[in-house]
Design a protein around this nucleic acid. Sequence first.
DNA 1: CCTAAATATGCCTTTACACGTATATGCGCT
DNA 2: AGCGCATATACGTGTAAAGGCATATTTAGG
Lengths: 132, 132
Amino acid sequence: MESAFDIIAEPNRRAILSLLVSSQQSVGEIERRLRMSQPAVSKHLRVLRDAGFVESTVDAQRRLYQLKPESLQEVDVWLAQFRRFWNAHVDALERHLDRMDQSQTKSRAPTRKKTNKRSRGANRERDKGETK
Amino acid sequence: MESAFDIIAEPNRRAILSLLVSSQQSVGEIERRLRMSQPAVSKHLRVLRDAGFVESTVDAQRRLYQLKPESLQEVDVWLAQFRRFWNAHVDALERHLDRMDQSQTKSRAPTRKKTNKRSRGANRERDKGETK
DNA sequence: CCTAAATATGCCTTTACACGTATATGCGCT
DNA sequence: AGCGCATATACGTGTAAAGGCATATTTAGG
C-alpha cells in the first residue's frame, strides 16, 4: 500500500522522524516539541509504525517511540542511482554547493571538523566497487 | 505541492526520473516505455520541471527531457541524518542484511568481508521493482 | 494555408489523506 | 473503586492531487 515515499512525503512525519534520530521520545514530548495535536501525533506514529519506520516500547502510561534503523533503506537505495548521476556532474554540483554553503548559514552542525574542504561524494563512503 | 518529497511520492514520477537517469527521453518514449497516457506524462513532466527536477530542450516537435543534477539534493541531505543513525547501528544492520543475503542469494562480488568496518555503509546496491 | 504528429492544457470526477473534535482504552495512584 | 494522565481510535469534513477525455498549441512538410 504505502511506499516509504508516501510516508516521508508528509512534513510532520518527517519532523517526527528527525526528532527521533537523536533519541526516543514519548508521544507527549513529540506533541509538545512539534506543536501538533495529540491525535495527529498518534496517527502519524501509527502510520510510521505500520510502515516499519519506528517501534514503541511501553513505559507506564507512556509509549516511547524510537527509530528503526532499516527504515529508510528503500529511499536510500532508490536515491543511489541519482548519486551516480550526480557524480558524473560533480563540477556543476560543487559550484552549486559552494553557493549554498555561503547563503545557508542555518542549522549546520557545529561539528565542522576536518575535511572542511568537503569530501562531498553524496556521503563519505569509501566504497567505490558499487556493483551496478 | 512544494517539497521534493511530494514530487517523488508519486510512483509514476519516480519511474520517469529513473528512466531519465540513463539518458534523455522524449515524451512519446516515456509514454511508450512506462505505458501511461500522454497527458499523464506531460502533466508529471510539468510538475517535475516546475520543481526543477528536469529540463527540456526542443527537438522539432519533440521535447527532450533530461535530469537536472541538483534535483534530488534536498532529499539526500535530509536522508543524511539517518545514515549517521544507521552507522551507529551497523551491527544490527549487518545482521539484518545477512539474513537478506541468505534468502535472496545474489551473486555477490568478493566485496564481502564479514565484520568489516562498514564496507557497505549507506548505499548498498540492490535493484527491485516498485511496489505500489 | 492545411494537415498530421508531438506535446501541452483545461475540465471533470474520483479518491486519498490530514486534520479537528469527540470519545474510547490503558495505566497508575490514593 | 474512582480519578487523572497519556495515548489511541472513530467520525465527519475539506482539500488537493491524479487520471481520463477532449481540445489547444506548436512544428514540419506538402
